[in-house]
């Protein structure tokens, strides 16, 4: 059942991206989607289908503009540092605990952190996230990193958990 749903999703994506509505194109798409869904069955990738719940999708739609705003801010920040002839950086690796439980949520958090201003996730060990910062604050770098995680965690918990 779930495999069929996954194959159907793949097929829709295929049709949308090729724009081929002739019988040969549709048949090739169906074959490819079925093969992909079957190949992924063993890997348990279909578990991701629960993410298509409407409430989760709604929060994902809320999350996207938030993330985009962070990405633009982080780019302006990096651009400012790179253009400045004095190269104002004070790099280092800080750490912070995440309160998220599920693995996909943590992975999404780590990826979001990489795209936000001045931070890049280096590793996730248990629930500890190691974050490289381009500017380490004078006092309490770990606390500052922790506070930067919070806006993401609330939304990601609604999407993934």
């Amino acid at each position: 059942m779930r495999t069929a749903a996954a194959a159907l999703l793949c097929w829709i994506a295929w049709i949308a991206s090729t724009g081929a509505l002739d019988p040969v194109g549709l048949a090739a798409g169906a074959a490819a989607s079925a093969a992909a869904a079957l190949a992924l069955r063993r890997e348990g990738a279909e578990a991701g289908l629960v993410l298509l719940h409407p409430v989760r999708l709604f929060w994902a739609l809320v999350y996207l503009p938030v993330l985009l705003a962070f990405i633009v801010r982080s780019n302006l920040d990096v651009a400012r540092r790179v253009i400045d002839p004095r190269l104002p950086i004070r790099p280092g690796i800080a750490k912070a605990r995440t309160t998220l439980r599920s693995l996909p949520a943590r992975a999404a958090l780590a990826n979001s952190v990489t795209l936000t201003p001045g931070t890049m996730s280096v590793d996730l060990v248990g629930d500890v996230l190691y974050v490289h910062r381009i500017w380490v604050p004078e006092e309490d770098p770990d606390g500052a990193t922790r506070r930067e995680l919070e806006p993401f965690e609330g939304l990601l918990r609604r999407i993934f958990e």
Binding site: I71, V78, R81, V82, L87, V122
Partner: peptide, 23 residues
Amino acid sequence: LLGCVGLVRLPDVYNRLQAGTKC
């Protein structure tokens, strides 16, 4: 272009990755 300039100017792998990936 800014990202690539960062790639050239910044001092170590981690900073370069930051600038490069983001921009």
